[in-house]
């Protein structure tokens, strides 16, 4: 169910969550190229817990809402998908319920591109960055901000266990507008 908000960004309601992380082969994880920071954290539950590939650990905020995760890239990157691991069964009132995704060149010009409502999620939650227009399959940005606007049961601080950010895999053949998949096509794709 998608509804147009007053800001013009897409608002989606998501329930459930997937216990297995499955992502298309044509996407690559981009988070390792970024600098990650958070608005606040409890000692021992810092930003590194979001990136340690361990579902037992979590980032815990320690301040007022919204709780922010900032993902900053040195160069402009194409991003297509954000995947969060959240667990209502374990985290209860610490589980995010409303999440906003913002993008821009830096803190000075972030624009909200999507707002998602999570309903008691347990597992991997997929947040596509594609717009209403089917041609807008990705965002081209220096910075992404994930804002936890509210938690379940009116909780103050939040727990997020993992965040992955995916973008289209770079084309192996430069200056080629599309990517061949079969070996034959790739073999004959350039003049020898």
């Amino acid at each position: 169910m998608a509804a147009e908000s007053s800001e013009g960004e897409e608002e989606t309601k998501l329930s459930g969550g997937s216990l297995l992380l499955t992502v298309d082969d044509d996407l690559t994880e981009m988070g390792k190229k970024a600098a990650w920071s958070v608005s606040s954290c409890k000692p021992g539950n810092g930003v590194s817990s979001l990136r340690d590939d361990n579902l037992e650990t979590y980032w815990q905020s320690d301040g007022g809402q919204p709780h922010l995760v900032n993902i900053q890239f040195q160069k402009k990157v194409r991003l297509q998908l954000i995947v969060l691991y959240v667990d209502f069964k374990l985290d209860e009132s610490y589980t995010p319920s409303k999440v906003s995704i913002r993008a821009g060149d830096g803190f000075h010009n972030l624009k909200e591109i999507k707002t998602v409502e999570l309903v008691k999620p347990t597992g991997w939650v997929y947040l596509s960055l594609s717009g209403v227009d089917p041609r807008d399959t990705f965002v081209n940005t220096f910075m992404l901000q994930i804002a936890v606007l509210s938690n379940h049961l009116n909780g103050r601080d939040t727990h997020v266990r993992q965040i992955k950010v995916y973008g289209p895999r770079p084309n192996p053949i430069p200056h080629q507008p599309f990517q061949f998949t079969s070996r034959e096509f790739i073999t004959y794709s350039s003049i020898r």
Partner: peptide, 9 residues
């Protein structure tokens, strides 16, 4: 702020 900022390896 050590816990608040992380960089890729």
């Amino acid at each position: 702020d050590y816990g608040s900022i992380s960089f890729g390896e």
